[in-house]
Amino acid sequence: MVRITFFFIFLAISVFARTGVYQKNCIPCHEDMAVKIDKFFYRYLLKYSSEMEVKNAMSKYLKNPKAENSILVDGLINRFGVKKKTTLSDEQLQEALDTYWEQYKVFDKLK
């Protein structure tokens, strides 16, 4: 009984947690990757600096993924390959990127 309750609670949390575009469309794939999703973020940050430029670069890549405009180093690209083109609409993509930014941004986190 206790186990079943826990299972349902876990299921509920998982379902509720994955309501956003980002959680539904980004996390599942990235979860299984050797390079974690936050590493991608800090790589983008290292190259593009501001919120606007980071989001623009990500959006550009996701809409048209190519080895040349990937943030990953050649070794990793060769190993893991280039992802498929996004199926998300512009609005959805934007929402996903906003969530991504909010989660990993440096602002207000530094002490």
Binding site: S50, E51, E53, V106
Partner: peptide, 28 residues
């Protein structure tokens, strides 16, 4: 930057004060 998950304390030095800004000139 490398250890940002574990450590989030901005480096301080008694010889100077410092600040960082992103490319849109927003203060980090």
């Amino acid at each position: 930057h490398i250890n940002f998950e574990k450590e989030q304390t901005y480096p301080r030095d008694e010889r100077f004060n410092s600040a960082i800004y992103d490319s849109s000139l927003k203060q980090i």
